[in-house]
Nucleic acid binder design. Structure first.
Lengths: 225, 225
DNA sequence: GACACACTGTGACTGGCGTCACTTCGGCGC
DNA sequence: GCGCCGAAGTGACGCCAGTCACAGTGTGTC
């Protein structure tokens, strides 16, 4: 089943079955329990990872110990590419948000694929471009939007990736605490909590343990911009 | 002389003279005067540009018309890669900060180089990785640092790229108005002005027209983090 | 069942910074 | 030299959101 997820991953797009099989075979497997750390900001390391199951968070810590999440990644998404092409220590800490499994590839092995297979290079370029565009969007949001707006946007983003339509609305099991959600939008836990409570009181969503039910996506979208 | 600048550009790193010559020959030239717009957010377009002379700014505009600068780019730096690998409209507006010249390459032409020359793909991957890391740093700064800290950081960044050591300190001819500097750090012009005035009153720098003289880089560095 | 501990919910207070409203400065055209 | 206009400098004021300080709530462990 892991190989099915891998076939969907952007890194594998454009590869035929045989090549995908070979690439997959050269990857190592690993497993993490909720809260466990895969590697930390500043560590050495140049492996590329693909999440096959569960969710991880990429975070950075400021000098005075506060934390900020760059992204929440789920099945099929990759991370660790930065240390591959811009050599240096890891730029973020990766922690499991749920129990999860992933597969990884060493710098050297990836290099062989890159040189022989232009489509792998293309896939990576595309992936980095998407990430860069997203990072720029985050910057714009931090500059232009207030906290409720950023919370709304984060919920919509999570719903697109982890949501499931039900009769009442979109059920989003994000597996994040409000503290983590706050770190993701760059705000304090209290402020995020108040924004969520406000949305709930307006009937736009219902709060549940580590998940939300989005009931009025249009209003949330309007609030997000 | 343009070709000299090009040889220094990351895109050309790893190419031998002959290949660099051929790549350069397939590029178009263009020229812009201060304040002129090359293309706007939302425009169609898939050319990759390299600045050969002068400076440009990449900016985005919010729904209510406020502006935010993603980067100031000088000779040797490239832009427009996003639309190449993540097809879609341009994600930022590019405006000349000074009179400037640049060369550009079409998507299709670049494609040929990518497939035949793994080193070009490598160079681009590296470039995107650097940009992505920087974008993540900007996000962290917006979350963790106050406006004076971000101003200090921006000045240090500009000094690294456009600074010239003199007997009194580092002369940085950034060519930006305080309004533009404010958009670059995501703050209001007034607040940036007050931060600069404060730094000047402490003797850390001296303000000049569209340039600054950095006199105490260490203190600025300490203030920046 | 009882306790511990992590997470959530909410109010009071405060400060950084955006907005507004000026004044001052400097370069450029006539 | 004079007026104009964009840029730079500066104070008053208000609000968003961070911090602090609790009070609930739920969940896992013994």
């Amino acid at each position: 089943m892991d190989t099915e997820v891998l076939r969907e991953a952007p890194l594998f797009s454009g590869l035929d079955d045989e090549a995908a099989q070979a690439l997959s075979a050269s990857m190592d497997h690993s497993r993490l329990g909720r809260g466990e750390v895969l590697f930390r900001e500043g560590d050495e390391g140049d492996r590329l990872y693909v999440v096959t199951n569960g969710k991880v968070k990429l975070g950075r810590t400021s000098a005075d110990g506060r934390e900020n999440l760059l992204a929440i990644l789920g099945p099929g998404q990759m991370f660790g590419e930065l240390s591959l092409f811009d050599p240096g220590p890891r730029s973020a800490t990766v922690t499991a948000v749920t129990d999860c499994t992933m597969q990884s590839l060493s710098h050297d092995d990836l290099g062989k694929w890159l040189d022989g297979r232009p489509e792998v290079a293309r896939a990576l370029l595309e992936q980095l471009a998407v990430r860069l565009r997203k990072a720029n969007d985050v910057v714009a949001d931090l500059v232009f939007s207030d906290v409720p707006g950023r919370v709304a946007k984060a919920l919509l983003d999570l719903s697109g990736r982890f949501g499931r339509a039900t009769s009442e609305g979109i059920q989003v099991n994000h597996d994040l605490t409000q503290e983590e959600l706050a770190q993701l939008v760059g705000a304090s836990r209290e402020t995020v909590n108040k924004a969520l409570a406000d949305f709930a009181s307006r009937g736009w969503l219902r709060l549940e343990a580590r998940s939300v039910l989005l009931m009025d996506v249009d209003r949330l979208k309007r609030r997000a911009r």
